[in-house]
Design a protein around this nucleic acid. Structure first.
Lengths: 225, 225
DNA sequence: TTGGAAATGATAGTATTACTATCATAAATA
DNA sequence: TATTTATGATAGTAATACTATCATTTCCAA
């Protein structure tokens, strides 16, 4: 038996649920590929339509615009990551071990069944690294936030902040430290591959070094209090 | 006497040097205002042209496209910040004191003479917080980097990494820690104001709390080695 | 099995964006 | 005064980001 994780998506993110039809799944699948290949800026509904053999109008029936589609993908990603974290840290007693596991998941992402669904999680991970911030770095953050578009991100951050507090109840900045490690797991990766002199990992370009850096950052902050 | 800081800009960022004419300075000045007001996505050359009473073609004589203009502004910002840092930490012996000063400058930015030039540095700071990452989160990072567009950022990061190493010569990740505090000085600010639950500063929304967080993060990492 | 709703395909059309090109005029400069 | 150089004015194009309409197919329920 093969389990399919179902991530409950915010209904306001789409006009028609892409999970509900083949066309919808195709849109998501090829959006991931196209966005990975061309980047968010050069990504257009026309291009998806052409590659999957439908028309622009067809895509617009599912998503209002490409911003919503990006937010959809990021929400899916954070949701999936929170699931992975709860799955992999389940039954762990020691919060320190938990936190280490979280850092590893943040920095590597995609575990096991890559082909679980129509979403290529490995590509999605790379998209989120390069484009994820653009989901909220906009003039409409406020409204988008009111509509709960960033709930999966905030939930994930809260989960991590709680583990941090378990590790070190007196630490004063659990949420900021959580968002810092989430963001840095991605940014250090982007820098390592694209602007390596902003990191100490330019030579080997190993994700494991990012993990070491984050572990060091987090656990010196939490130790001895 | 009033000193005017001159930041040497990469010539490949523009077609005609905006500092060399009134029109050029006007373009920069109103770009900052418009980008602040509308955000990078809604910012167009037509809109600048209309607000300063020239034509689109006029803007295109100075900048190839709005991406280059954004990169220009970020380069200017990092250059100015590096200058401020070297100015304010000049003659300081204790690297710890220096580093504290750096963190404060990163998180507050804009010091003293706001009206030094045609660039409103206070607005520019806000633009960099919300739009700065978009300068490098693109498919062309590689080429842009080859043309040295990000040199001011990388130089600043190197300066900070050096101070970190002075504080703690054995610390293994000076560059990554430097890019982390640079990015987080901005992201925590953005989060605090727009997605406050990602931070511990949502209640008071005080920059000083971001500074405390960064100080804690950095100095626990560097202490006791 | 049949009738009707829902989803898709096909086509058209609009406003805006992101440019490029041309030519006349004004300003600076040699 | 001649001549670059910068700017203004206008036009035009291809692509983007949509919206609208109508015909066809699919699917589900009476």
């Amino acid at each position: 038996m093969r389990l399919q994780i179902q991530i409950k998506m915010n209904e306001a993110l789409f006009l028609r649920n892409p999970e509900s039809s083949d066309l919808g799944k195709n849109i998501i699948k090829h959006s991931v590929q196209l966005m990975y290949k061309n980047g968010f800026e050069a990504f257009t509904f026309k291009k998806i339509a052409d590659t999957i053999g439908t028309t622009e109008a067809g895509i617009y029936r599912y998503f209002e615009n490409k911003h919503k589609l990006l937010v959809y993908l990021t929400a899916w990603y954070w949701g999936s990551l929170e699931f992975q974290i709860s799955f992999h840290t389940n039954n762990m007693k020691d919060p320190t071990v938990k936190l280490k596991r979280v850092i590893k998941l943040l920095a590597t992402a995609v575990d096991g069944d890559e082909q679980t669904s129509y979403i290529n999680e490995s590509l999605l991970h790379k998209i989120i690294i390069a484009e994820g911030s653009k989901a909220y770095l906009t003039k409409q953050v406020g409204e988008d936030n009111k509509q709960q578009f960033f709930k999966p991100y905030k939930d994930l951050c809260a989960v991590i902040a709680n583990i941090i507090s378990e590790c070190s109840p007196k630490y004063k900045y659990p949420k900021s430290l959580a968002s810092t490690i989430i963001e840095m797991a991605h940014f250090q990766n982007f820098f390592m591959n694209n602007l390596p002199s902003l990191t100490d990992f330019g030579k080997n370009k190993e994700e494991s070094e990012i993990i070491s850096f984050l572990n060091d950052l987090v656990f010196t902050s939490l130790k001895k209090r």
